[in-house]
């Protein structure tokens, strides 16, 4: 049982780590675009913003299971295979990018507009304002966003069992629930709880340190 748990934990961490990494990067980029083109942004472009906004909302309204299955051709294109832990990273990332974009957009909008105006008043360029003022001011909040993202992806990754992604969720379901192995189910859930706790307290710790 221990070996099963360990390999499931490995699969879970693998999926969560890489999908968090990619979707944090993608979501951050998308958030910057939303902030830049938004109604009170530095370069308001209402058409571009409306299009991005709609795309984000559409992607976010898909249930993950459906999205994962709909994405199978795309997954095969990107990952070469459609099944397995590595393949699961593709739909996880696609689903999490718009989620992360909204979180980071919210954090960036929280930045004091006065500080932004002050930076403009001494001649900072748009990119300096975004990266050296807004992102720097919002950094602690963005760190917390990443923690929330990783925990959400941990939950999604359980469903990745459906395309052979493996991991703790799949173990709990296949071994524990279907085969009535209550002990396995219990242990898998316990490990998941520990992982969630670790991610959250790691995020909180960094938040306090950076603030």
């Amino acid at each position: 049982m221990t070996t099963m748990l360990v390999s499931a934990l490995n699969e879970t961490l693998f999926m969560v780590f890489f999908s968090t990494l990619f979707s944090a990067a993608g979501g951050f980029g998308l958030a910057v675009l939303l902030i830049l083109t938004g109604p009170h942004g530095l370069r308001p472009k209402s058409r571009v913003y409306a299009a991005l906004d709609l795309a984000v909302n559409l992607l976010r309204s898909f249930p993950f299971m459906i999205l994962m299955i709909a994405l199978i051709p795309f997954t095969r294109l990107v990952a070469g295979v459609a099944y397995g832990s590595a393949a699961a990273i593709v739909p996880l990332t696609v689903a999490a990018i718009p989620f992360m974009a909204r979180l980071v957009e919210g954090s960036l909008l929280e930045v004091d507009q006065g500080v932004v105006e002050a930076a403009r008043s001494f001649g900072a360029s748009d990119s300096q304002i975004i990266f050296r003022v807004m992102v720097m001011e919002a950094l602690p909040a963005i760190i917390l966003n990443v923690a929330v993202l990783a925990i959400t992806l941990l939950g999604y990754s359980a469903m990745a069992g459906a395309i052979g992604g493996g991991g703790l969720g799949a173990l709990a379901y296949n071994e524990g629930y279907i085969r009535f192995r209550a002990d396995i189910m219990f242990c898998a859930v316990a490990v998941l709880i520990v992982v969630v706790q670790c991610i959250q307290s790691g995020g909180n710790h960094l938040y306090k340190k950076l603030r």
């Binding site: 004091d112 006065g114 001011e137």
Partner: peptide, 11 residues
């Protein structure tokens, strides 16, 4: 430019 609420970078 100088502002009423100072507008300093808090971090």
């Amino acid at each position: 430019m100088v502002f009423q609420d100072f507008s300093l970078m808090s971090r």
